[in-house]
Structure formats: C-alpha cells, structure tokens
C-alpha cells in the first residue's frame, strides 16, 4: 500500500545542533500513529517538518499526490497568540485560509463549514465567546475544529490531551477516534497512557526514531528512548507493552 506520507532519512536541527537524525516513517491510510518520546526529543519538530513550517537539513518528506494542503495541523495548546482578541468562530474560520485565498473574503461555504464543525465539536453555543475565556478542553477543541475546517485527509496533533482536564480528555480521545474513521491521525505526546487502547502504530522518538511498528515494545527499546525507563514510564507506556525489568 502506498504511504500517505513517506518520510526518509530526515535530519534537522536548530543552530547546528541536530534535533532529529535520519528519521524514517510511513503514515498509511486511516493510520493512527502515536509518536512518543521525552520532552525535547524532537516530536514537535517532526510535525513542523511534515507541515512545512521548517525545512529539513537533509532527507525527504513525500506526500501522496493530491495530499498537498490536506494536512490538518493541531499545534500545542500554547502555540497561538493568546493576546489576539478573537471569537471561537473567527478562529475556526482562520483554518480556511491558505496560500491561495488569504486576500479573499470568507465565502458562505467557509461559514457553513465552520458552523457545521463547531456544532460537531460541541462548540456552537460558544462560537461568539472570546477564545481566551474558554477552558483548556474547549480551546483544544477549537484548535481541532480549525484544522478540520480545511477538510484534511491527515490530522496531526501535538500533545492534544496535555492541557485539558480528565473529562475533556475522554471527549477529545473519543473525538480523535471518531475522526480516525475518516482520516489518518498522527498524535505526538510525552504521555501516551490515554492513547494505549486506540493507537495502531507506535513510533518512539528521541533524536533517532528508535522503534516503529505495530507490535509491543520491549524494555531495551524503551531504555534507549528514555535513557532511564523505570521512573519515566511509571505512568507512561502501558505496562502490558513492556517486558519485565
């Protein structure tokens, strides 16, 4: 099966210090890829490379034909400018903007789609509220809605459950699961526990991509990724995936 996204030997860093080295990864149709690893391991950078926000030093990222502009990006909670006054609906609408239409007005199609997605995300009642007055879980859903309004075929989420409470976490997990029926999903997180029952494909990233497959993890791989696995994995990787230490 042809990959949706094919990443080969990707190397990238900041200020001559490599953050990612020779990373290769395939994202398939309807995939649910969980990219885990310690903070500073290059997870966010990997998403930024895929989204074209930064350019790789070497290596390639190939998108399947027709996929250009169909990647939905849900950046980390803290990434956008909280000082910008904007309503939830306006923020979702900014997801319609791309390199070709940023000088045009929003069309009625854009508005309809935004309304539909706000409704689906349970945000319709809140559409006129200032984004900064919303709760963590609601803001996270606004960020997902912004990505969905461009009708993506792959959804890439950066720490989608980190800044939300337990109830919202369950809602967001269900939502991602539901979306996965229509599109491939890539989730980047340092805390994979909530995703243990749902992911299909696991990648462990700490500068190198240590593991990439569907089978269970073993302790040696985890040790390489995290350095010292026992403490870090206390509430990390689901225990069933690990062999005994």
């Amino acid at each position: 099966m042809e990959s949706l996204i094919e990443i080969r030997d990707l190397t990238f860093g900041y200020d001559s210090i490599p953050v990612l080295e020779r990373v290769s990864l395939d994202i398939l149709d309807r995939d649910y890829v969980l990219v885990i690893g310690p903070n500073g391991g290059g997870k966010t950078t990997l998403l930024k490379l895929i989204m074209g926000i930064v350019r790789p030093w070497s290596g390639s990222i190939r998108l399947r034909e027709g996929l250009e502009g169909r990647l939905g990006y849900v950046p980390q909670f803290s990434s956008f400018n909280k000082n910008f006054p904007i309503t939830a609906r306006e923020m979702v609408l900014t997801g319609c903007i791309d390199g070709k239409n940023y000088f045009r007005r929003y069309g009625s199609q854009d508005r309809d789609r935004a309304n539909r997605i706000l409704d689906k995300m349970g945000l319709y009642e809140l559409r006129r509220r200032n984004v900064n007055d919303l709760s963590g879980g609601q803001i996270q859903r606004v960020l997902i809605a912004r990505a969905l309004v461009a009708e993506p075929e792959v959804l890439l989420l950066d720490e989608p459950t980190t800044s939300v409470d337990i109830t919202s976490r369950a809602t967001i997990l269900d939502l991602i699961g539901e979306l996965n029926e229509q599109m491939a999903v890539v989730v980047v997180t340092h805390d994979p526990t909530p995703f243990a029952p749902v992911y299909r494909h696991l990648a462990c990233l700490n500068r190198h991509l240590y593991y990439h497959g569907r089978e269970g993890l073993d302790a040696t791989v985890m040790e390489k990724v995290y350095g010292c696995p026992v403490e870090l994995l206390g509430h990390g990787i689901p225990h069933t995936l690990l062999t005994d230490h």
Binding site: G52, F80, D98, F103
Partner: peptide
C-alpha cells in the same frame, strides 16, 4: 483591507499560517 485575513492569521498563529502556505515573511 486586501490582506486582512493573512495579517490576522499571522498575528494569531504564525506557525500555523506558515503550515497553511501563507507567505508569512512577505506579509
């Protein structure tokens, strides 16, 4: 007026605007 949407999307979230292919540096 002409580039309003572009300016807004950059002021709100520059990385996201870049990801969407908006000419961030030029704007």
């Amino acid at each position: 007026f002409v580039f309003f949407k572009g300016f807004v999307s950059i002021a709100l979230d520059e990385d996201y605007a870049r990801a969407r292919g908006i000419p961030v540096d030029a704007l």
